[in-house]
């Protein structure tokens, strides 16, 4: 798809190629970007599930039982697996991007990007472990 004007002498008629709808499909890096954007949908969906869980909790034991049964359905488990993968992907791309925004100098020397990424991952694992600890040890 291209847009342009008709040529007249001394009036150039540049054409402007328009981006195709499938542009994100044309480069692996573009695809990876669109997938990262897509993670937002799953994160949002999971937030909705959390809200529904809270509602079920407040609506009494019968509602809660029904809700947890629904959550245990194969469809629901399948969704959770996919959502988890997207969440992990989101976290990883986020950590990889972190060094672009953070410029840290320690003793006059810039901290290498790898160190920054590693620091983020370590904090992530520690936080996850802590949350898991709170939830699983009762």
């Amino acid at each position: 798809m291209e847009s342009q004007t008709t040529y007249k002498r001394f009036r150039p008629a540049p054409y402007t190629p328009k981006m195709q709808l499938s542009w994100w499909w044309q480069k692996p890096t573009y695809f990876a970007y669109i997938m990262r954007e897509l993670t937002a949908v799953f994160v949002a969906a999971y937030a909705v599930i959390l809200l529904l869980t809270l509602r079920a909790l407040s609506a009494g034991e019968a509602a809660w039982e029904a809700w947890t049964t629904t959550l245990q359905s194969p469809l629901s488990i399948g969704f959770h697996v996919v959502a988890l993968l997207f969440a992990v992907y989101h976290s990883i791309t986020w950590f990889m991007a972190a060094p672009t925004a953070i410029v840290l100098n320690v003793k006059g020397k810039p901290v290498p990007a790898k160190t920054l990424i590693l620091a983020h991952v370590v904090i992530w694992i520690v936080c996850s472990a802590a949350i898991a600890g709170i939830l699983l040890t009762r």
Binding site: K27, T29, Y30, Y33, E37, A97, T100, A101, V103
Partner: peptide
């Protein structure tokens, strides 16, 4: 900018515009 990062990969002089923009966002 939506942080695609492709500008920095394309840059022949390693300017890293992605980084410049991210730092500006902060």
């Amino acid at each position: 900018c939506t942080l695609i990062g492709e500008c920095s990969r394309a840059c022949p002089k390693h300017v890293d515009p992605t980084g410049a923009i991210q730092r500006y966002k902060a």
